[in-house]
Design a protein around this nucleic acid. Structure first.
Length: 646
DNA sequence: AGCACGCCGACT
DNA sequence: GTCGGCGTGCTC
């Protein structure tokens, strides 16, 4: 028989292979044999000396700029129309934004091991346990759930229109507005309708029962705690479900729902949405992108909005529920001053526990109540604060607190500016500096000295964890030992986070009728005052101003480049190359390099980009130019929108 | 990611 | 002499 009359009409297509660091590869196919192919089809392709599965990315007219002889034939079609165009668009967006290869990103769309199952032909006739009999959305007709959403949002859900709504100040496990949003998004009489609900991991356990109660069996968990085979099972289940409410943390934004009508993000500020492995995406931002491609609204819910969301609200990109669109100046909550004590530690210089805190601890003890003492971090915080006037030493360029180094110099972790520690406070000429904050052990020792730490005591001393857990029912007082460490941390987001933390503590303490003692050297700081006044807009506006002046998000975009190699010389060479290449791009600024580990020859730079350019589009060519020429002896780690810059 | 190619140590 | 260590490099 030999070769049959094969086709003058060979076609070409680009294929993305999941879980490879490749973008896309060109393959040949013959429509007479395979039928026409389309983006999203899964095909079997030869790669080196093996065969793998790939996703058809696009059909190409003719063979592109690659030697025709190198192009191989597609080995077969495995399954058609697996990845909808909405997800293909999302993959492209994430790759462009986070500077990742298409193959890396596609790994999130097709679960690990799915390829093997499909290749083994396991797929055909494979039935997934059907969604329980009553697959329709089961709703309690509680009047509580109605009328929480603005009419425009309801319209956007019904008309399948993209938009982002921020709903802030909500209380309870799941705010009523969120329940109503999901209800409306999944309540389609005609066709299937699904919603994705994202939340920090810590909330899943408490929220799921509420969601199950409200929406019954259509609630599906899709997150990293599942084993690989469970992920595959759930993936199939979601794909074949007409209606679903899919719940998870990060990977859930990639859930294969094909009739997406809305996405909810609970606690939009949560750092848990940032994926810290390879394509370092922020699931909150990917959710917004997905909603755009899927044409559906997003509801961001939190107690305090992020500065990004506030900024987007003010310029009309997002809608802020319950906020006057004009300026947001009416965005005020109830003052929280009742039962709250702000202690000016400048009057108690050498104390760890102020007289007020001691009084409140004793009071709680007398009433048999629990006392919480919160310390920012175990060990030391190395910022420098003037004990006379409360001034925190900051970098003159970045307005970020400086960090005291072992050799007595103070360094800015953003731009690397290093100066000797000052003899006088630049503000008040005082000479009394505090270089470190008290740790857990010191507080416990002081409590012992005051007779407040003994058998069966009800004082809990700790760091972040004591605030992460729900407050005990019989809480009497929360003491914040040194609140200044909170917003003097060397992070441009420190003040925002301190404000959020304080609001959260005040809010939760009030539900327990507990008192709050805030010890600080800066009792008049906007962070404290606006939190106590419930003046969210006031704080966010003042903070936006600082960010604008110093050129930080949301006005500029940050990209953290960590480079490591055999020698520091080579690393510096590459950094210079990056700097030179980027000097051609307008409005790009580079901070650093700061040396992270001299021994391991690791250095980092922070690139500030204008917000209107896709980081990947600018950085990809730069990195191939720099790394491509010389060899890959310097490893470059790219983190777009890094959570923190060490 | 995989999987091959490649150039140096202890072994049937 | 060969088996095999995992350091570099490429995948249409």
């Amino acid at each position: 028989m030999g070769i049959e009359l094969l086709p003058m009409g060979a076609s070409f297509c680009a294929v993305v292979i999941p879980r490879t660091p490749l973008s896309c590869l060109t393959y040949r196919f013959h429509p007479e044999v395979t039928g026409e192919l389309a983006p999203g089809d899964i095909v079997r392709v030869p790669l080196r000396k093996r065969q793998t599965l790939g996703v058809v990315w696009e059909i190409q007219k003719g063979c592109p700029d690659i030697d025709r002889a190198e192009v191989k034939d597609i080995a077969g079609v495995v399954k058609r129309m697996v990845v909808p165009s909405e997800l293909l668009q999302l993959v492209r967006w994430v790759a462009d934004y986070y500077c990742a290869a298409l193959g890396e990103v596609m790994g999130f769309v097709l679960p690990r091991g799915l390829s093997k199952e499909l290749l083994a032909g396991k797929e055909e006739g494979m039935e997934v346990a059907p969604v329980a009999a009553s697959a329709s959305v089961r709703l309690r007709a509680s009047p509580l759930w109605q009328g929480k959403l603005p009419p425009e949002l309801i319209q956007a859900i019904e008309e399948k229109r993209f938009g982002v709504w921020g709903d802030f100040g909500g209380a309870g496990e799941i705010p009523d507005s969120v329940i109503e949003f999901i209800q409306r998004a999944t309540d389609s009489a005609t066709a299937g309708a699904s919603a994705i609900v994202m939340m920090p991991e810590a909330r899943i356990a408490t929220c799921l029962p509420f969601l199950r109660d409200a929406f019954g069996d259509v609630v599906i968990e899709y997150h990293h705690r599942l084993t690989p085979s469970e992920v595959r099972r759930v993936w199939r289940l979601i794909k074949q479900s007409e209606k679903s409410v899919v719940v998870g943390v990060r990977s859930v934004v990639w859930a294969p729902v094909e009739n997406l009508r809305g996405i909810v993000v609970l606690e939009e500020h949560s750092p848990g949405f940032k994926e810290e492995r390879k394509p370092r995406f922020n699931a909150r931002d990917v959710a917004i992108a997905r909603a755009k491609f899927a044409s559906c609204p997003v509801l961001l819910s939190d107690l305090t909005p992020t500065l990004e969301t506030w900024h987007n609200g003010k310029r009309g990109k997002f809608q802020l529920v319950g906020v006057s669109q004009a300026a947001g100046e009416r965005y005020r909550f109830q003052p929280m001053r009742e039962n709250v004590f702000v202690v000016d530690m400048r009057l108690h210089r050498d104390e760890v526990l102020s007289p007020r805190l001691l009084t409140e601890l004793k009071r709680a003890r007398e009433r048999g109540k629990v006392a919480l003492c919160y310390i920012n971090r175990k060990g030391v915080s190395r910022f420098v604060v003037c004990r006379t006037c409360g001034t925190v030493l900051r970098c003159p360029d970045c307005d970020v607190p400086g960090v005291l180094m072992g050799d007595g110099t103070v360094i800015c972790r953003y731009c690397g500016l290093t100066k000797p520690a000052p003899d006088f406070c630049p503000n008040c000429q005082g000479v009394d500096f505090q270089f470190r904050a008290p740790g857990v052990d010191m507080v416990k020792r002081k409590l012992k000295e005051c007779g407040l730490w003994d058998e069966g005591n009800k004082v809990i001393v700790g760091t972040k964890k004591v605030l992460a857990a729900p407050f005990p029912e019989d809480l009497g007082v929360v003491g914040i030992i040194n609140f200044d460490t909170e917003f003097a941390l060397p992070d441009f987001r420190a003040r925002e986070e301190a404000f959020r933390l304080l609001r959260d503590v005040l809010f939760r303490a009030r539900t327990r009728r507990a008192r709050v003692v805030i010890q600080t050297y800066r009792p008049d700081d906007v962070v404290i005052n606006s939190a106590l006044e419930g003046d969210v807009a006031g704080f966010l506006d003042s903070e936006l101003k600082v960010r604008k002046e110093t050129g930080f998000p949301p006005y500029r975009r940050l990209v953290l480049l960590t480079l490591s190699g055999k020698g520091l010389e080579r690393v510096k060479e590459v950094i210079d190359g990056v700097r030179k290449a980027l000097s051609k791009v307008d409005n790009v600024e580079i901070l650093g390099p700061l040396l992270l580990r001299k021994r391991q020859a690791t250095a980092a730079i922070i690139i500030k980009l204008p917000t209107n350019i896709m980081p990947g589009k600018v950085l990809m060519p730069v990195l191939t130019e720099v790394g491509g020429g010389k060899r890959g002896d310097v490893r470059v780690k790219i983190d777009v929108d890094p959570r923190e810059v060490i």
